[in-house]
Design a protein around this nucleic acid. Sequence first.
DNA 1: CGTACGTTTGACTCTGTTCAATTGCCGTGG
DNA 2: CCACGGCAATTGAACAGAGTCAAACGTACG
Lengths: 246, 246
Amino acid sequence: MLSDTPIPNNHDITRAKSNCSACSLRELCLPVGLNEQEVEILGDLVNHKCRIQRGEYLHHTGSNFQSLYAVRRGFFKTYVLEQDGRQQVTGFHMTGELIGLDAISTEMHTCDAVALEDSEVCEIPFAKLEEMSRNIPSLMRHFHKIMSREIVKDHGVMMLLGSMKAEERLATFLLNLSHRFFKRGYSSSDFILRMTREEIGSYLGLKLETVSRAFSKLQEEEIIAVHNKHIQINDIDRLRNKIGTA
Amino acid sequence: MLSDTPIPNNHDITRAKSNCSACSLRELCLPVGLNEQEVEILGDLVNHKCRIQRGEYLHHTGSNFQSLYAVRRGFFKTYVLEQDGRQQVTGFHMTGELIGLDAISTEMHTCDAVALEDSEVCEIPFAKLEEMSRNIPSLMRHFHKIMSREIVKDHGVMMLLGSMKAEERLATFLLNLSHRFFKRGYSSSDFILRMTREEIGSYLGLKLETVSRAFSKLQEEEIIAVHNKHIQINDIDRLRNKIGTA
DNA sequence: CGTACGTTTGACTCTGTTCAATTGCCGTGG
DNA sequence: CCACGGCAATTGAACAGAGTCAAACGTACG
């Protein structure tokens, strides 16, 4: 499980000046609501674009916090280690999303972040972001909204973990992924999972066997089609009905 | 359950100018790390101190977001309503803690906040806080840390909900309360719960009966003493051992 | 081509839920 | 002051859902 590349941090192989104003992610990422000039300034701040290969880590628990990372391409998971060594996945992160918000509080990372496929991130030095947001109110405002959205998202997960049954949890998870793919211009009904059943289970508070059974059940009912990590949603309405109608 | 005072918002009965520099909560609340002059300015911002009686609401889901609230005295719970009407408690909030961070993202409150005992809060107009934090970097920094801490806290709850057994959850909950009381100068081993078994259960992802049984079990083992809402922790080490050693 | 890992499926166990009855606590009103 | 009613909490018994253990299968990668 923890086999691939334990402590690398040599992920500056390919660095290039990034360019927020030309980036297709503008509407998803940090520059939301900024004018051209402001985006230009932000582009100077976000001075590194780096490639992260599958299995490489963005940061480890306890490592020093310097920067946030915006996912430019690819897929990440973040997780915390429990005292007994098992990992609890705290989130999956895709294009346009920010990683590292948890580390601001203590200036140390509180989780590990690892790439589940070959990826690319923009490194955003946090001190500079704070400084810049003093002069650009809309940037500050948007950053606050991003942090707040993270809190709201976590409350949603708490609700899921606190009161849903296995099938409801999986349905919620699939609908969430579907929606996020859709917003990024991909198919909302046909996608490849980047994570294993065990990782899904960890995120949803279930064992991998239970996740597998829930997949099989949804497939039997012809709501989805599962071919390993390839998922097709055949009947999104019935999938939605799974939630709160178990 | 939803009986007492449904839509009040008349909680400005007693308003008084607050005074951050004289407040005993300075080290817990927003002014952490500010100098005297900065605290003075902040005091002008936090222009209302208001009393909230037990059962009154600070805000409802969907209501317009204007201000954060710092608990000055008392005890609150926040919860979201699920489609079937049940409530999922997302947090308990005591002296020095900030309520409303979730609402920044959409400028609408995403949960209900209700007082579990007679309380007092400072209202902090968010727009003014943002404006002020532009001029006081340490204030901005501290505010970001508070938001980040909230995210970290939620990850802890996710871990609890995702992988702990009933007894471990309750032990974790009691230790957390104990620690928070201690930091506020109260006894860490002898306190009154402000919430019902059902509310604890909702927060911990358990049914009220299970919570009750877990209390009884801990009492049988003489780790704690329970008299209704009065809790005494007799052996905090064994309580700690309950976590991760089930 | 063979091995290793991820996945599926089955049988059994166990934890927590559900339903129901009982007790205890506290405020109200006689 | 005590009796009553209502709500919270406790406890028991039966049940259900998810976990555990184990075996077999498929796919991916060296």
